[in-house]
Design a protein around this nucleic acid. Structure first.
Lengths: 202, 202, 202, 202
DNA sequence: TGATAACCGAGACGGTACGTCCCGTCTTTTA
DNA sequence: TAAAAGACGGGACGTACCGTCTCGGTTATCA
């Protein structure tokens, strides 16, 4: 998203302080006023920045929001990995419970819903999202599953992408559609049922 | 959503023709111009109606869109049921393939994304959606699963709500987040994996 | 303005109480909210009357306002006459001072400005006004001047219409254009100057 | 009315071309559709301008109209003076006949009525009018009378403000109230009667 | 060590849409 | 059949933002 500036002759460079101010303002504003009332005008005012400075570097308010997430996630990642105690079921429950907590946290919930909406309606943004944010995250999840697969705890021919979607998809979906309460217990049952399948065992 | 009019004295009654024109216009417009450019002004113009007639009866454009879906679904339901040949896996694949086809159909895709977005950002609308649209649909799905459960094809202690979410959630999610292609094959694999679980079978 | 109803058989007759309520409401409202914000909707609401009842009997809100004035003036006239003590100058000063007081009275000022505006922009209303309200008033004024003319206090060939306009016109104009303070002293000087003329006497 | 822009740092400046387009459009529109149907929306459309550009610089459509008059008058004035042949009566008749012609001219009549109405209902506008348009005009008239006064053709103690109002007030009033035909002969008789007074001469 | 060119804040601009008010017409129900 | 109630198609209101476009003012190389 963020264009890389050439360091060619005679060029004044992009202001890093303005960039951070804009991303911070966007993230805070979407929490406060909600996605529908988020405006470029408002972001600029809050950041103490001219509107043109936003339009110069981002194509849409969705892109700004996206970069705001990217800034946050870059602060936190760095070779992160899911817990691997050897007990797949327990580990997955731990992680899904954490996801539930995060989605229920109002500080992250509203911005994430906003980003989600932008992705739904902007294929280009969706592609960047898949590459920069969702992709790395999914890889981390798949890595844990791969480890379990090697240990014979998962079917040898299991499609790991599908597996990840079966574990996190219902969660994400219930959250977006407000289809019911998101509780730790729900996370637990989801893990159990996904691992064992819907059919009777034996 | 639609308020029931009392037939008290001296009351001019709601115009049914305007109501239908508005809902039809909203549904058509969201297909043509997309969710972001859908406007109350546009709906009113297309329907040949004053803006006030919309604001008089609906609190938001999301509510209009919702009622448009309701109108369609009411035309189509009437004790609908999922196929029940006795072969659960085959029946589920049939149904999920149909869902995939519907989501990929541009005539329904865009309006559904729009509705989905409105639900994400409007808890009130979400509640009505759960009650009037999603609820009845889910009941139909659960009915088919219940039949299988009675036949011993599903675990006796299976939570049918969770089962439905595990079957349709990943689909819905991949569609909303554009997380990958929605194909009939994907539907098939989803059904198989959900039924058998992620673990190795024996 | 007010249509005369036939008292023919089988016809529900015009409601006198509604008529009075409308006129009263119009007069009060124009005082309270001013001419610009006076609306048929508001008059109907205040009078507890359907809008149609207004449109049935009056062609415009100006006509309503006009009838409101008519109602007031009809309560007050009945062969009124200007004072005639034999001292023309003193009598005119008395009358013009009264006019000044009336124009400065906020209870009558705003409605009169409103009526004035309607007349300015509606020739039809202007004609009715000339016939029903201004005409009779002017006749009364001219009657006093005629008496003075007979007594040799006014030029024998004086055009009395013009004379009335020279006495009241500057007053009215200063009031409408807010061209200066409307004081009793101003009225006095106006009378003196009009009677004696601008030229040096002798 | 027109705000003087400070030339401080970082200020985008007012567009002179938009300003002229707006004033021209307002003046033309009020002629064509009349005062009652003059709308900010219409002015903006005719001028090819956003509505906000009007609301940014003028508080009301009356203020726009006023500035339109100001623009015209500023094009035409520049030390204008009334004719002074030494014959006061003749000069005044010439000028009042010109006033009559102007008021009867539909190109100026309708806009002037509109401005007049706005002034009647907006004290603030009235003050600006008195200072910027009516004041200078009145001064020119008073100058001619002052000259006559020095020549002994007007009473030495005559209040020139009052004199101007006595000459032009009845004209203005008859025009606004449509109290009768505005003819050159009327202007003549008004001048004669005002100069000589209503009383018998000697 | 300027010059010079891009970036920056500010905010005016032509527009679109908002949600509200009121217009004048109409339909329904009651008295 | 007049009157209350009020919904209707429509036009305009004044406001919020859109994305574009000047304006000075301020850096930060390069010639």
């Amino acid at each position: 998203m963020t264009t890389q500036r050439k360091s060619s002759a005679g060029a004044a460079r992009r202001s890093e302080s303005s960039r951070r101010a804009i991303l911070t303002a966007a993230f805070e504003l979407v929490q406060e006023v909600g996605y529908a009332k988020l405006s470029v005008e408002g972001i600029a005012a809050r950041a103490g920045v001219g509107k043109q400075t936003i339009y110069r570097w981002w194509p849409s308010k969705g892109a700004v929001l996206f970069d705001a997430f990217l800034m946050l996630s870059e602060g936190a990642d760095g070779e992160a990995a899911l817990p691997d105690t050897g007990d797949l079921e327990a580990d997955l429950k731990t992680v899904l419970r954490a996801t539930v907590a995060e989605l229920n946290d109002p500080r992250y919930g509203e911005p994430m819903r906003a980003l989600s909406t932008e992705i739904t309606h902007d294929p280009e943004l969706a592609a960047v999202y898949a590459e920069r944010l969702d992709g790395p995250m999914k890889e981390i999840k798949k890595e844990r599953l791969r480890s379990a697969q090697r240990a014979g705890q998962l079917a040898a021919d299991l499609d790991l992408d599908l597996a990840v979607e079966m574990l996190w998809g219902p969660l994400q979906n219930r959250w977006l559609q407000r289809g019911g309460p998101l509780t730790p217990e729900y996370a637990d049952r989801l893990v159990e049922t996904a691992l064992n399948g819907l059919r009777p065992r034996r």
